[in-house]
Simulated scan of single mutants.
Amino acid sequence: MTGRQGVVLYGPPASGKDTVTAALTELHPQYAQFARLKVGTGKSAGYRMGTAEQLRQLEAAGDIVYANARYGNTYAIDRPGVDAAFAAGVPVVHLGQVDGIRALVDGYPAVWSVVLLWCPREVTEQRSAGRGDSDTAARLAAWDTTREDLDAHPNTTWDLTVDTTVTSPQEAARLIDQLLAQRAAAA
């Protein structure tokens, strides 16, 4: 096992993945959000926009660690992208599917700290509307899917669970950073 450490933030839409990642980066600049490869349209910030042909080439080379479709787009975690993220520091990977966590943890050698960020459905609705999302209904459907995903995988273990309705982003970042420090000391 490699000594490289990464963070996986799992949770429904608007649970705080972007906000906690920003707080982590403020705490220590070596943390950086992993920019998944996105094939499709819409929001491009936080993604590496790609083409269907690039995705096919990565798949043919065996370099897709995990891919999923949501909001009419394909989102991929690719081996070259994760390699580059580790070369730059400590990647923070955002996921909304337990299968994605398993694929990453099992398919990319590193010490992954898996964190569940959670908020109730009504908070997702309030946060989504508050930030001006044009697709709040789709985000609520994704919240429902995330809840079903958790229910379908009751034995999923989390290194840390954070209720983002009661824990500030700065405190969540401190807890995650502390978790990584503990894991590094134990290695």
Rank of each mutant, 00 (worst) to 15 (best):
L104G: 05
V8E: 06
L116E: 13
V92L: 14
Q30R: 12
L95P: 02
Q182K: 13
A103C: 00
D83R: 12
A181T: 12
V8G: 08
A187R: 15
W112S: 10
Q182G: 09
L9K: 05
P120N: 11
N155E: 13
A181N: 12
Q97R: 12
A69N: 14
T19H: 11
A76S: 12
R174D: 09
E26I: 07
D149C: 09
A60M: 06
L24G: 01
R121M: 13
R127V: 08
D99A: 15
L104V: 05
P29L: 11
Y75P: 04
F86E: 03
T19I: 11
K43M: 01
V39M: 10
V166F: 07
D83Q: 06
W143Q: 06
M49C: 13
Q182S: 14
A87G: 09
A85S: 14
A173C: 11
A103H: 01
G107W: 02
A173T: 05
K17E: 10
Q97V: 00
P91S: 05
T167V: 14
A85L: 05
A23I: 00
R131H: 04
E53V: 10
H28M: 10
L37Q: 03
I77L: 15
V115P: 01
G62R: 13
Q182M: 11
T161P: 00
G96M: 01
H94S: 11
R139C: 00
A32V: 08
K43G: 06
V65K: 02
L58T: 01
P91K: 07
L140D: 08
Q182C: 08
A137S: 04
I176S: 14
G72S: 09
A84F: 03
V90E: 07
A52T: 09
H94C: 10
G96H: 07
